[in-house]
Design a protein around this nucleic acid. Structure first.
Lengths: 230, 230
DNA sequence: ATAAAAAACTGAGGTAGATCAGAAAAAAAA
DNA sequence: TTTTTTTTCTGATCTACCTCAGTTTTTTAT
């Protein structure tokens, strides 16, 4: 199967922040040109194709970043707090969001004026170097998922996602999933019914345990094996 | 089907260069820390997972950038000359190539020392801003392909690739394809047999014409329709 | 607490597309 | 040119997965 050295994870997790690289003056500039917006569970933070006037920093909560499709969306990443969102809209000749974002929980987002953000990138090369790092780590993960979704079958894809959620988002083998089966299907590019069936198979085989929304990964070795074999 | 506003193209085409943003001094730095390497058709330029000591600039020729899989690869992009390659390896904690690159034609690649490149990014923010632009345009295209490969059926995927090759790489409705059916299958994530069958269908329907390696897109409207409907 | 709506689940059947095996054609080598 | 190798093509079969239609459970609203 190969290409498994790649990180198939769904989330940006650059614990590395970027704002500490700004000067005090620049931090003030961010603060005075941004607003904090709160969202309830299930709300839309930004809409694919709409005008991208802000870079967003997720201060609190969990969101999905997704491409809208008919009838099914493609979830690019599930993203936890302390992450920048909308960075990919930073290129000249484009002024729209490449994707939509909606919330799984209550969420606080700092909306930073995109012109100010661009200004900072142009004047502070350490800041922009860090942003390059962040973008590339995200791209690296995206490639992993790309391979997973196009080259693995259902079991492998679901194993990938479960491992990723456990490691990257919840950082525990046992976690409470605020993500519906239908969203899992958008994450793995399969039908909702298939998600359910395979989850049941995994449970019957003792690989995971499911209690309502509570998922526990019991046999990581086998799960990784399924991921690797595709 | 939606998400068709996204560019499903296979190639980076930022005609925008980046080197003109360097000072004369910095240009000298690049020149004295890079070498030009020539490759024959079919040779491997860099290997996924190996140590990424260079950023590569494709001066001449056509290459494919791909994730290695067993048994089938996933071609991320077909890339023509005047493009940077290997940029995605620019993040700390990673020092390997995320993908392999091999040549479709005779190729000249300028190999730029990665430390020098990083140095330039850190010291010249206009340069790094441009690199961010380039990375984001590439990511934007990558998302388009991601959606295409995971949410469209065979016809739509092949239509996407044909349109893209025509527009972005060869810039003509008629072009000589140096890419085998097998590589087209790695581009579209389908079997080689399916590529052949659908190409024949398109030909029978008068949508394209095939003479040996010479491909002509006859009916762009219908082709785009097939792309849009998935 | 009860009703309504949404999500989770299950089974039967259908199909898009892969796989396999082999033929024809083209390209490369001798 | 002739032979060998690679690529392209074709048809038959098979299967992984989707779709559909319905039931049960959970969540939300009243």
């Amino acid at each position: 199967m190969q290409s498994s050295g790649l990180d198939t994870c769904v989330s940006f997790v650059y614990d590395l922040s970027c704002f500490e690289l700004l000067t005090d003056e620049e931090k003030v500039m961010i603060n005075s040109n941004s607003v904090l917006v709160n969202f309830k569970k299930g709300e839309i933070v930004c809409k694919q194709g709409s005008f991208a006037s802000h870079i967003m920093y997720l201060e609190k909560g969990l969101v999905k970043i997704y491409l809208e499709g008919n009838p099914k969306d493609l979830i690019l990443t599930v993203t936890p707090s302390k992450n920048l969102m909308g960075l990919q809209s930073l290129f000249e000749g484009n002024n729209t969001f490449l994707y939509s974002i909606s919330t799984y929980t209550e969420v606080s987002v700092r909306m930073i004026d995109i012109q100010v953000f661009k200004q900072l990138l142009r004047q502070n090369s350490h800041f922009s170097y860090r942003i390059i790092n962040i973008l590339n780590e995200s791209t690296s993960q995206s490639y992993g998922r790309f391979f997973s979704l196009t080259h693995k079958q259902l079991n492998g894809r679901l194993a990938d996602i479960l491992l990723c959620l456990s490691r990257r988002i919840f950082k525990s083998n046992s976690f409470n999933l605020p993500i519906s089966r239908s969203d899992l299907s958008d994450l793995t590019s399969m039908s909702t019914e298939s998600v359910i069936r395979i989850m049941k198979d995994f449970k019957d085989d003792g690989i995971i345990d499911i209690n309502n929304k509570e998922i526990t990964l019991l046999d990581l070795v086998r799960l990784e094996n399924i991921s690797a074999k595709g």
